[in-house]
């Protein structure tokens, strides 16, 4: 798959001396959904703002579909649509007029059919004559997405698109984003909701303290770093883990009612059969067992914490 966006060695140090990005390299593939994860202040919004031309990088280069974003900003920016994190829109404009404004600003002539389609896709058609200040928070967020789509971008940046949005609207948005991908739009989203990335993304990037810690195919990442857990509900509670079970590094949960075994799902030997045999040997019975795999959130937290520990060390 070809690359539509290349970020090369991009760094940003603000006037205050704060280093927001540190030599970030990133390749975005054409047509994919890429999720950029990171805690608050990690540098997600700064990275997006630099790519979109809102913030000037201290160093590095950015190519948007082959166009240098700094030397040829007009060509580069015409490919990009941005949905910002904050609801920043002229509240006195009507939905329809604000879409026409965005389309014009990006150098596109009027196209009523396209705007109608965008408004209908986002369930805003009935509200097209309404002033934006009259709309609910969720509707306003949809307007921001509609504005970004009004000029038919090849790349769509969604900065925390579902922040403060109720569950059903969030699902609608995921569906809409999926539909955009099917039509060939490349989507880059930042999110705090790991389930959002887990649900939609093809690839995931984790950023923390201005450094891109990893970029990985979501499924590969979960396979590579994903841990599984075996939970055994004990017939009789234990006060402590018997010494004979040391080699499995078990943990005792739920006031001794549950034994938890964490194992690598990809390992040749999971250690489960031997554990079960040992339990039988020691006369420890169990009523039920359950397995679960770690979520992207667990992987993300693990990665960030590990990196923090490395930094401290």
């Amino acid at each position: 798959m070809t690359s539509i966006l290349s970020v090369n060695q991009v760094s940003k140090t603000y006037g205050s001396g704060q280093r927001a990005l540190d030599h970030v390299d990133l390749e975005i593939r054409r047509g994919e959904i890429f999720a950029l994860l990171g805690p608050n202040g990690a540098g997600k919004t700064t990275l997006i703002s630099i790519i979109c031309g809102i913030v000037t990088p201290s160093s590095g280069t950015i190519l948007v579909d082959g166009h240098d974003a700094i030397r040829s900003p007009r060509e580069a920016r015409s490919k990009i649509g941005l949905v910002p994190q904050e609801i920043s829109v002229d509240m006195f404009s009507t939905v329809e007029s604000t879409l026409r404004f965005s389309r014009g600003l990006f150098g596109k002539g009027p196209n009523d059919a396209h705007l109608e389609q965008v408004l209908k896709d986002l369930s805003l058609w009935d509200k097209r004559k309404a002033q934006i200040r009259e709309l609910s928070g969720g509707m306003k967020r949809r307007v921001l997405i509609a504005k970004a789509l009004s000029h038919e971008p090849d790349i769509l940046f969604l900065d925390e698109p579902t922040a403060g949005v109720d569950v059903s609207l969030r699902r609608d948005m995921w569906k809409m984003i999926g539909g955009l991908r099917e039509r060939g739009t490349t989507i880059i989203l930042t999110t705090h909701y790991i389930e959002e990335a887990e649900e939609m993304a093809d690839r995931v990037g984790v950023i923390n303290k201005g450094q891109l810690l990893l970029v990985e195919d979501k499924a590969e990442l979960m396979k590579k770093l994903g841990k599984r857990e075996l939970d055994l509900s004990l017939a009789d509670p234990l006060e402590a883990i018997p010494p004979g079970l040391d080699e499995w590094h078990l943990s005792l949960e739920d006031e001794g009612h549950r034994l938890r075994y964490t194992f690598d799902a990809q390992a040749e030997r999971t250690g489960i059969p031997s554990l079960l045999r040992k339990l039988a040997e020691l006369g420890i019975g169990f009523k039920d067992l359950d397995t679960s795999k770690s979520s992207l959130e667990d992987i993300f937290v693990d990665l960030v914490e590990r990196k923090d520990e490395e930094t401290v060390a």
Binding site: G53, E75, R77, L82, S88, V89, M91
Partner: peptide, 13 residues
Amino acid sequence: TGTIFELLSAPIS
């Protein structure tokens, strides 16, 4: 209002 982001990110000189 923060809508300046749209002007700065648009392909307009």
